[in-house]
Design a protein around this nucleic acid. Structure first.
Length: 483
RNA sequence: GGCGCGUUGGUCAAGUGGUCUAAGACACCGCCCUUUCACGGCGGUAACACGGGUUCAAAUCCCGUACGCGUCACCA
């Protein structure tokens, strides 16, 4: 049988990284098995509906390079792929279930009736009273009264199912509520639409979050009532976030950027995000590889590699991985991608390629760029302590000694020779001649034109980028401040 | 609280009864390299939640406890 998986988000306008991971695993599993991956929109909650959310979801999947074979706007033989467009289908099956005695209409006024004496409060106050309404009376009342369709749960025994990840899971039927299948507004609930659609769309493997473990027995009962074979269930452990105080809880906005979009805006590459997220809860068998292209993920993916326990999202590691992608990236591509993050470069505009080359190996996120290059645009305030460097045995005294000579030398460099290699050559010759240590001599030079202890690039690279006029002006100024 | 699921270093994790004096990665620390920082190279610190079983042998199987997470909606 052809493997078919689906990603079934509700359109809330936010693609949480945990959801993205669920989509990714469903996609990887389908593709690994030469199957289909379906996008289905679960918009049965009218109150929560967000207008552009479907486009948003599609854009996010596209950015993540997760491509659906079927879905809204994509087509496929099992449409429509938006649940609000399938109401007639759900209604039909709801009536069939009533007919079969596996469900019944409920005319109770409100969702949560308070029970008088606190007894039978197990189901939020719902007391199963409408179960006992005779069939013909119920049918009649359905014509004139608003109602809800509830699933008639067995009162005894147990229902169990096999989860590919967790093994056999069983629940006592008495724990199961007569849950609503069809709401008063005619919309199905998740628990109902889900079963109908997964069956009709021939989904073979349901890969979804662990929050559905407890509602799965209800789904299984529905499959049974309808005479359908349930698909395989795979319930994924959740992704957690770590708060500032070190506490761990389900990933949410209070943990900072947690949506794919936020992360991308911070300058994490989509490929890196996908790669990192793939490894949060899954890892390859028989290998310690960590950097994966999408094709490699597909090739390596297997359900056996899924982890049963929660995982904590770690920006630190994502940053490392992003840096790996940045370093491996083609220079031209990096420069193009990084440019929007650089802001207004002013006079340095023409030097961007050089700047980008220095940046490439030393950032983990693209949005670190402005802070990294700010010193190029404007000389930071003078700070004498920067001229002291223990390792190279550099002191302010030494800076005062060497800088005037360097200035003198640099002034003789013609404009057309003001570039890294030439500058390095000349400075190196000067250093050798004077008998200085290279590291020691270059330190004050770099500080005098950058005003920063750590900079992308060394002394001559910075000189080259700043240009002769600016470099000399900065150096003179620093020297003045120094004395 | 009931029910369910889980628990290997700070984090991601390998490990499916002996090869575990428990892999790898991030982070951290040290050394080397070095035109600073970084990159890179080498090395180090650091874990089987606890208690009982079963077994010749347990991180691996069973039971209990603790802790964490989930769920108990006309939300998904």
């Amino acid at each position: 049988m052809k493997v078919r998986t689906r990603f079934a988000p509700s359109p809330t306008g936010y693609m949480h990284i945990g959801n993205l991971r669920t989509a990714l695993y469903a996609y990887l599993f389908a593709k690994k098995n030469k199957g289909d991956f379906i996008l289905r929109i679960e918009d049965t909650d009218r109150a929560r509906y967000v207008p552009d959310a479907v486009d948003f979801i599609k854009r996010t999947l596209k950015a993540a390079n997760i491509v659906a074979d079927e879905g809204p706007g994509i087509g496929g033989e099992f449409g429509p792929y938006v649940q609000s467009e399938r109401m007639e289908i759900y209604k039909k099956y709801a009536m069939e279930l009533i007919e079969k005695g596996a469900a019944y209409p409920c005319f109770c006024d409100d969702k949560r009736e308070e029970t008088a004496n606190g007894e039978d409060n197990k189901f939020g106050g719902y007391n199963r009273a409408c179960r006992d309404i005779p069939a013909d009376e119920a049918k009649k009342r359905m014509e004139n009264e608003p109602f809800v369709v509830r699933q008639k749960m067995p009162l005894t025994g147990e229902t169990s199912y096999f989860d590919v990840l967790h093994g056999a899971i069983s629940f006592n039927n008495e724990e199961l509520e007569d849950q609503v299948l069809l709401k008063r507004d005619g919309m199905p609930t998740y628990n109902f639409a889900n079963v109908i659609d997964d069956h009709l769309m021939e989904v073979t493997h349901i890969i979804r979050g662990a929050e559905f473990i407890t509602s799965t027995p209800k789904h299984v009962l529905l499959y049974q009532a309808l005479g359908w074979e349930p698909p395989a269930f795979i319930h994924l452990a959740p992704v957690m976030g770590k708060a500032a105080d070190g506490s761990v809880s389900k990933l949410s906005k209070r943990h900072g950027a947690t949506s794919f979009e936020d992360l991308a805006n911070m300058g994490y590459l989509p490929e890196a995000i996908v790669n990192y997220v793939a490894l949060l809860g899954w890892n390859p068998k028989n290998s310690t590889q960590e950097i994966f292209s999408m094709d490699e993920l597909i090739e390596e993916f297997s359900l056996e590699g899924l982890s049963k326990s929660n995982s904590v999202f770690d920006y630190e590691k994502l940053g490392w991985m992003n840096g790996e992608y940045l370093k491996a990236m083609d220079s031209a591509k990096f420069s193009e991608l990084a440019k929007p993050f650089a802001g207004d470069l002013g006079a340095l505009e023409a030097e961007w390629e050089k700047i980008a080359a220095l940046l490439k190996t030393r950032i983990s996120r693209l949005d670190e760029i402005p802070a990294e290059i700010a010193f190029l645009k404007e000389m930071p305030p003078f700070d004498a302590s920067l001229y002291i460097n223990k390792r190279n045995k550099v002191t302010a005294e030494f800076a005062k000694e060497i800088l005037p000579n360097v200035l003198e030398l640099l002034e003789t460099v013609p404009d057309n020779e003001w570039e890294n290699d030439k500058l390095y050559e000349k400075l190196n010759a000067f250093i050798t001649e004077k008998g200085y240590k290279k590291g020691a001599a270059l330190w004050p030079i770099r500080i005098s034109v950058s005003g920063k202890s750590a900079t992308p690039g060394g002394a001559t690279e910075i000189l080259a980028i700043l240009g002769k006029t600016e470099s000399l002006a900065r150096m003179k100024n620093s020297l003045q401040n120094l004395t």
